[in-house]
Design a protein around this nucleic acid. Structure first.
Lengths: 151, 151
DNA sequence: ATGAGTGCAAAGTATTTGCACGTAC
DNA sequence: GTACGTGCAAATACTTTGCACTCAT
Protein backbone atom coordinates (compact mmCIF):
# COMPACT_ATOMS: atom_id res chain seq x y z
CA UNK A 1 0.00 0.00 0.00
CA UNK A 2 1.62 3.16 -1.25
CA UNK A 3 -1.05 5.48 0.05
CA UNK A 4 -0.33 7.69 3.03
CA UNK A 5 -3.56 7.47 4.95
CA UNK A 6 -2.28 9.64 7.74
CA UNK A 7 -1.68 12.46 5.28
CA UNK A 8 -5.11 12.00 3.73
CA UNK A 9 -6.82 12.17 7.08
CA UNK A 10 -4.85 15.28 7.92
CA UNK A 11 -6.03 16.91 4.72
CA UNK A 12 -9.55 15.73 5.31
CA UNK A 13 -9.42 17.31 8.75
CA UNK A 14 -8.47 20.62 7.18
CA UNK A 15 -11.21 20.18 4.63
CA UNK A 16 -13.78 19.68 7.38
CA UNK A 17 -12.58 22.63 9.43
CA UNK A 18 -12.71 24.83 6.36
CA UNK A 19 -16.38 23.92 6.07
CA UNK A 20 -17.02 24.36 9.78
CA UNK A 21 -17.79 20.71 10.09
CA UNK A 22 -16.70 18.49 12.91
CA UNK A 23 -13.88 16.03 12.79
CA UNK A 24 -15.50 12.92 14.16
CA UNK A 25 -14.05 9.51 14.76
CA UNK A 26 -16.66 8.01 12.52
CA UNK A 27 -15.56 10.16 9.58
CA UNK A 28 -11.88 9.48 9.98
CA UNK A 29 -12.45 5.80 10.55
CA UNK A 30 -14.38 5.40 7.36
CA UNK A 31 -11.35 6.46 5.37
CA UNK A 32 -9.28 3.72 6.97
CA UNK A 33 -11.99 1.17 6.52
CA UNK A 34 -12.55 1.97 2.86
CA UNK A 35 -8.82 1.95 2.13
CA UNK A 36 -8.57 -1.31 3.95
CA UNK A 37 -11.42 -2.87 2.01
CA UNK A 38 -9.24 -2.43 -1.03
CA UNK A 39 -11.77 -2.82 -3.81
CA UNK A 40 -14.94 -1.51 -5.36
CA UNK A 41 -17.84 -1.47 -2.98
CA UNK A 42 -21.52 -0.83 -2.69
CA UNK A 43 -23.12 0.80 0.33
CA UNK A 44 -24.44 -2.51 1.58
CA UNK A 45 -21.01 -4.11 1.40
CA UNK A 46 -19.47 -1.21 3.23
CA UNK A 47 -22.01 -1.40 6.02
CA UNK A 48 -21.20 -5.08 6.52
CA UNK A 49 -17.49 -4.47 6.33
CA UNK A 50 -17.64 -1.75 8.94
CA UNK A 51 -19.68 -3.93 11.28
CA UNK A 52 -17.26 -6.77 10.82
CA UNK A 53 -14.19 -4.63 11.47
CA UNK A 54 -15.39 -2.49 14.32
CA UNK A 55 -17.35 -3.06 17.46
CA UNK A 56 -19.68 -0.15 16.99
CA UNK A 57 -20.86 -0.57 13.43
CA UNK A 58 -22.29 2.43 11.65
CA UNK A 59 -25.69 3.40 10.38
CA UNK A 60 -26.53 3.47 6.74
CA UNK A 61 -27.42 7.16 7.06
CA UNK A 62 -23.96 8.03 8.26
CA UNK A 63 -22.44 5.97 5.50
CA UNK A 64 -24.43 7.81 2.87
CA UNK A 65 -23.67 11.17 4.42
CA UNK A 66 -19.99 10.45 4.77
CA UNK A 67 -19.65 9.00 1.29
CA UNK A 68 -21.03 12.24 -0.06
CA UNK A 69 -18.44 14.18 1.93
CA UNK A 70 -15.63 11.95 0.78
CA UNK A 71 -16.71 12.45 -2.79
CA UNK A 72 -16.60 16.20 -2.35
CA UNK A 73 -13.21 15.83 -0.78
CA UNK A 74 -12.27 13.80 -3.80
CA UNK A 75 -11.02 10.49 -2.52
CA UNK A 76 -13.89 8.31 -3.58
CA UNK A 77 -15.98 8.20 -6.70
CA UNK A 78 -19.14 6.60 -8.00
CA UNK A 79 -17.63 4.49 -10.74
CA UNK A 80 -20.52 2.37 -11.88
CA UNK A 81 -24.22 3.04 -12.06
CA UNK A 82 -26.01 0.00 -13.29
CA UNK A 83 -29.57 -1.08 -12.66
CA UNK A 84 -30.23 0.45 -9.30
CA UNK A 85 -26.79 -0.14 -7.98
CA UNK A 86 -24.07 2.36 -7.32
CA UNK A 87 -20.54 1.11 -7.05
CA UNK A 88 -17.96 3.30 -5.36
CA UNK A 89 -14.23 3.22 -5.41
CA UNK A 90 -11.38 4.62 -3.35
CA UNK A 91 -9.38 6.52 -5.94
CA UNK A 92 -6.37 7.72 -4.02
CA UNK A 93 -3.08 6.58 -5.45
CA UNK A 94 -4.55 5.35 -8.70
CA UNK A 95 -4.30 6.94 -12.09
CA UNK A 96 -7.64 7.80 -13.50
CA UNK A 97 -9.10 4.69 -14.95
CA UNK A 98 -12.32 3.40 -16.42
CA UNK A 99 -14.20 0.12 -16.29
CA UNK A 100 -15.24 -2.87 -18.30
CA UNK A 101 -18.35 -4.37 -16.74
CA UNK A 102 -19.32 -7.92 -17.60
CA UNK A 103 -23.09 -8.15 -17.85
CA UNK A 104 -22.96 -11.92 -17.38
CA UNK A 105 -20.88 -12.38 -14.25
CA UNK A 106 -20.61 -8.83 -12.99
CA UNK A 107 -16.85 -8.80 -13.10
CA UNK A 108 -15.33 -5.36 -13.22
CA UNK A 109 -12.04 -4.77 -14.95
CA UNK A 110 -10.17 -1.51 -14.63
CA UNK A 111 -8.21 -0.03 -17.47
CA UNK A 112 -6.16 3.09 -17.92
CA UNK A 113 -5.95 4.85 -21.23
CA UNK A 114 -4.15 8.14 -21.37
CA UNK A 115 -5.25 8.79 -24.92
CA UNK A 116 -8.92 8.54 -24.06
CA UNK A 117 -8.37 10.96 -21.19
CA UNK A 118 -6.63 13.43 -23.45
CA UNK A 119 -9.28 13.23 -26.14
CA UNK A 120 -11.90 13.97 -23.53
CA UNK A 121 -10.03 17.07 -22.49
CA UNK A 122 -9.90 18.16 -26.10
CA UNK A 123 -13.64 17.70 -26.46
CA UNK A 124 -14.25 19.74 -23.32
CA UNK A 125 -11.95 22.48 -24.54
CA UNK A 126 -13.79 22.56 -27.84
CA UNK A 127 -17.11 23.16 -26.05
CA UNK A 128 -15.71 25.51 -23.41
CA UNK A 129 -16.81 22.95 -20.86
CA UNK A 130 -14.95 22.68 -17.54
CA UNK A 131 -14.87 19.02 -16.60
CA UNK A 132 -15.04 18.00 -12.97
CA UNK A 133 -15.03 14.28 -13.42
CA UNK A 134 -16.21 11.63 -15.77
CA UNK A 135 -17.35 8.08 -15.89
CA UNK A 136 -16.80 5.68 -18.74
CA UNK A 137 -18.47 2.31 -18.41
CA UNK A 138 -18.13 -0.28 -21.12
CA UNK A 139 -20.73 -3.01 -20.73
CA UNK A 140 -20.20 -6.32 -22.43
CA UNK A 141 -19.09 -9.89 -21.94
CA UNK A 142 -15.74 -10.80 -20.45
CA UNK A 143 -13.47 -13.38 -22.01
CA UNK A 144 -14.26 -16.08 -19.42
CA UNK A 145 -18.00 -15.76 -19.89
CA UNK A 146 -17.52 -15.74 -23.61
CA UNK A 147 -15.63 -19.01 -23.63
CA UNK A 148 -18.08 -20.55 -21.20
CA UNK A 149 -20.89 -19.61 -23.57
CA UNK A 150 -19.15 -21.21 -26.50
CA UNK A 151 -18.86 -24.53 -24.73
CA UNK B 1 -36.35 14.02 -39.67
CA UNK B 2 -34.34 11.54 -41.62
CA UNK B 3 -35.52 8.52 -39.69
CA UNK B 4 -37.89 6.10 -41.31
CA UNK B 5 -40.25 5.31 -38.47
CA UNK B 6 -42.38 3.06 -40.58
CA UNK B 7 -39.38 0.86 -41.26
CA UNK B 8 -38.41 0.82 -37.59
CA UNK B 9 -41.87 -0.23 -36.56
CA UNK B 10 -41.84 -2.96 -39.18
CA UNK B 11 -38.56 -4.26 -37.80
CA UNK B 12 -39.85 -3.98 -34.27
CA UNK B 13 -42.87 -6.02 -35.29
CA UNK B 14 -40.59 -8.76 -36.56
CA UNK B 15 -38.56 -8.51 -33.38
CA UNK B 16 -41.67 -9.02 -31.28
CA UNK B 17 -42.94 -11.93 -33.35
CA UNK B 18 -39.57 -13.60 -33.12
CA UNK B 19 -39.96 -13.46 -29.36
CA UNK B 20 -43.58 -14.60 -29.45
CA UNK B 21 -44.66 -11.29 -28.08
CA UNK B 22 -47.66 -9.34 -29.19
CA UNK B 23 -47.63 -6.35 -31.43
CA UNK B 24 -49.77 -3.92 -29.51
CA UNK B 25 -50.82 -0.43 -30.38
CA UNK B 26 -49.27 0.80 -27.19
CA UNK B 27 -45.86 -0.55 -28.15
CA UNK B 28 -45.88 0.83 -31.66
CA UNK B 29 -47.23 4.16 -30.50
CA UNK B 30 -44.46 4.62 -28.01
CA UNK B 31 -41.91 4.56 -30.81
CA UNK B 32 -43.71 7.38 -32.58
CA UNK B 33 -44.12 9.34 -29.39
CA UNK B 34 -40.49 9.03 -28.39
CA UNK B 35 -39.27 9.96 -31.87
CA UNK B 36 -41.64 12.86 -31.82
CA UNK B 37 -40.45 14.08 -28.45
CA UNK B 38 -37.12 14.60 -30.12
CA UNK B 39 -34.83 14.87 -27.14
CA UNK B 40 -33.50 13.16 -24.07
CA UNK B 41 -36.18 12.13 -21.65
CA UNK B 42 -36.85 10.69 -18.25
CA UNK B 43 -39.68 8.28 -17.50
CA UNK B 44 -41.72 11.00 -15.84
CA UNK B 45 -41.39 13.30 -18.82
CA UNK B 46 -42.40 10.54 -21.17
CA UNK B 47 -45.50 9.73 -19.14
CA UNK B 48 -46.57 13.38 -19.31
CA UNK B 49 -45.78 13.61 -22.99
CA UNK B 50 -47.82 10.54 -23.79
CA UNK B 51 -50.78 11.83 -21.81
CA UNK B 52 -50.54 15.16 -23.55
CA UNK B 53 -50.36 13.66 -27.02
CA UNK B 54 -52.87 10.86 -26.74
CA UNK B 55 -56.30 10.47 -25.27
CA UNK B 56 -55.61 7.24 -23.48
CA UNK B 57 -52.40 7.97 -21.65
CA UNK B 58 -50.28 5.07 -20.53
CA UNK B 59 -49.30 3.61 -17.20
CA UNK B 60 -45.87 3.95 -15.78
CA UNK B 61 -45.60 0.15 -15.67
CA UNK B 62 -46.11 -0.13 -19.39
CA UNK B 63 -43.63 2.63 -20.01
CA UNK B 64 -40.99 0.84 -17.97
CA UNK B 65 -41.76 -2.47 -19.60
CA UNK B 66 -41.73 -1.05 -23.08
CA UNK B 67 -38.57 0.97 -22.54
CA UNK B 68 -36.83 -2.24 -21.60
CA UNK B 69 -38.03 -3.87 -24.79
CA UNK B 70 -36.96 -0.92 -26.90
CA UNK B 71 -33.54 -1.07 -25.34
CA UNK B 72 -33.23 -4.73 -26.21
CA UNK B 73 -34.40 -3.90 -29.68
CA UNK B 74 -31.70 -1.26 -29.71
CA UNK B 75 -33.41 1.99 -30.52
CA UNK B 76 -33.18 3.65 -27.16
CA UNK B 77 -30.45 3.80 -24.59
CA UNK B 78 -29.92 4.89 -21.01
CA UNK B 79 -27.46 7.67 -21.63
CA UNK B 80 -27.18 9.33 -18.26
CA UNK B 81 -27.35 7.96 -14.76
CA UNK B 82 -27.01 10.75 -12.28
CA UNK B 83 -28.29 10.91 -8.74
CA UNK B 84 -31.31 8.69 -8.95
CA UNK B 85 -32.29 9.76 -12.39
CA UNK B 86 -32.07 7.81 -15.60
CA UNK B 87 -32.12 9.74 -18.83
CA UNK B 88 -32.98 7.89 -22.00
CA UNK B 89 -32.44 8.75 -25.60
CA UNK B 90 -33.78 7.69 -28.96
CA UNK B 91 -30.63 6.69 -30.79
CA UNK B 92 -31.86 5.85 -34.27
CA UNK B 93 -30.22 7.86 -37.00
CA UNK B 94 -27.50 9.21 -34.79
CA UNK B 95 -23.86 8.24 -34.73
CA UNK B 96 -22.77 6.98 -31.40
CA UNK B 97 -22.17 9.93 -29.19
CA UNK B 98 -21.44 10.76 -25.60
CA UNK B 99 -22.48 13.53 -23.24
CA UNK B 100 -21.27 16.56 -21.37
CA UNK B 101 -23.52 17.11 -18.37
CA UNK B 102 -23.52 20.49 -16.66
CA UNK B 103 -23.85 19.99 -12.93
CA UNK B 104 -25.04 23.58 -12.48
CA UNK B 105 -27.87 23.91 -14.97
CA UNK B 106 -28.33 20.31 -16.04
CA UNK B 107 -27.72 21.06 -19.68
CA UNK B 108 -26.71 18.06 -21.72
CA UNK B 109 -24.46 18.46 -24.73
CA UNK B 110 -23.86 15.64 -27.15
CA UNK B 111 -20.55 15.08 -28.81
CA UNK B 112 -19.21 12.55 -31.26
CA UNK B 113 -15.61 11.47 -31.20
CA UNK B 114 -14.57 8.66 -33.47
CA UNK B 115 -11.13 8.42 -31.91
CA UNK B 116 -12.52 7.78 -28.45
CA UNK B 117 -14.75 5.07 -29.89
CA UNK B 118 -11.82 3.42 -31.61
CA UNK B 119 -9.64 3.53 -28.55
CA UNK B 120 -12.38 1.86 -26.58
CA UNK B 121 -12.52 -0.94 -29.10
CA UNK B 122 -8.77 -1.34 -28.80
CA UNK B 123 -9.02 -1.59 -25.04
CA UNK B 124 -11.74 -4.22 -25.32
CA UNK B 125 -9.70 -6.20 -27.82
CA UNK B 126 -6.73 -6.09 -25.47
CA UNK B 127 -8.80 -7.62 -22.66
CA UNK B 128 -10.72 -10.04 -24.87
CA UNK B 129 -13.84 -8.24 -23.80
CA UNK B 130 -16.87 -8.18 -26.14
CA UNK B 131 -18.49 -4.79 -25.75
CA UNK B 132 -22.25 -4.45 -26.05
CA UNK B 133 -22.55 -0.79 -25.36
CA UNK B 134 -20.96 1.93 -23.35
CA UNK B 135 -21.72 5.15 -21.61
CA UNK B 136 -19.35 8.06 -21.24
CA UNK B 137 -20.57 10.92 -19.11
CA UNK B 138 -18.42 13.96 -18.53
CA UNK B 139 -19.70 16.00 -15.61
CA UNK B 140 -18.63 19.59 -15.27
CA UNK B 141 -19.68 23.18 -15.80
CA UNK B 142 -20.84 24.47 -19.15
CA UNK B 143 -19.53 27.68 -20.65
CA UNK B 144 -22.68 29.69 -19.85
CA UNK B 145 -22.68 28.70 -16.21
CA UNK B 146 -18.99 29.40 -16.04
CA UNK B 147 -19.34 32.96 -17.31
CA UNK B 148 -22.35 33.54 -15.09
CA UNK B 149 -20.25 32.49 -12.11
CA UNK B 150 -17.46 34.86 -13.02
CA UNK B 151 -19.80 37.83 -13.05
C1' DA C 1 -60.11 -19.43 -27.21
C1' DT C 2 -55.79 -18.61 -25.30
C1' DG C 3 -51.98 -16.49 -23.70
C1' DA C 4 -49.72 -12.26 -23.49
C1' DG C 5 -50.33 -7.07 -22.39
C1' DT C 6 -52.09 -3.49 -19.55
C1' DG C 7 -53.38 -0.62 -15.55
C1' DC C 8 -53.67 -0.36 -10.92
C1' DA C 9 -52.20 -0.81 -6.38
C1' DA C 10 -48.90 -2.92 -3.62
C1' DA C 11 -44.23 -4.29 -2.89
C1' DG C 12 -39.27 -3.69 -3.48
C1' DT C 13 -34.87 -1.10 -3.55
C1' DA C 14 -31.92 2.60 -2.83
C1' DT C 15 -31.41 6.82 -0.70
C1' DT C 16 -32.80 10.91 2.11
C1' DT C 17 -34.71 13.21 6.06
C1' DG C 18 -36.78 14.55 10.83
C1' DC C 19 -35.91 14.16 15.33
C1' DA C 20 -33.97 13.03 19.91
C1' DC C 21 -29.78 12.24 21.83
C1' DG C 22 -24.62 12.36 21.82
C1' DT C 23 -20.18 14.55 20.96
C1' DA C 24 -16.64 17.96 19.10
C1' DC C 25 -15.25 22.33 19.90
C1' DG D 1 -22.95 25.32 26.25
C1' DT D 2 -23.96 25.21 21.52
C1' DA D 3 -24.15 23.47 17.13
C1' DC D 4 -23.27 19.86 14.40
C1' DG D 5 -23.20 14.55 13.94
C1' DT D 6 -25.33 10.21 14.55
C1' DG D 7 -28.73 6.42 14.72
C1' DC D 8 -33.20 5.20 14.18
C1' DA D 9 -37.45 5.05 11.97
C1' DA D 10 -40.19 7.18 8.71
C1' DA D 11 -40.41 9.21 4.33
C1' DT D 12 -39.28 9.62 -0.56
C1' DA D 13 -38.12 8.32 -5.21
C1' DC D 14 -37.66 5.09 -8.66
C1' DT D 15 -38.72 0.75 -10.44
C1' DT D 16 -40.79 -3.89 -10.34
C1' DT D 17 -44.48 -7.13 -9.58
C1' DG D 18 -49.11 -9.65 -8.66
C1' DC D 19 -53.48 -9.77 -10.20
C1' DA D 20 -57.82 -9.06 -12.67
C1' DC D 21 -59.26 -7.57 -16.88
C1' DT D 22 -58.40 -6.66 -22.01
C1' DC D 23 -56.67 -7.46 -26.47
C1' DA D 24 -53.82 -9.67 -30.27
C1' DT D 25 -53.49 -13.81 -32.59
Amino acid sequence: MSVDLKEIKKEFTKFLKRKNMKVTQSRLDLIDLIADYGKHFEVEELVSWVSKRTNRGVSRSTIYRTLKLLQDFGIIKEVIKQNNRTIYEFIVGKSHHDHLVCVECGKITEFVDEDIENLQDEVCAKYGFSPLNHRLEIFGICSECMSRKKT
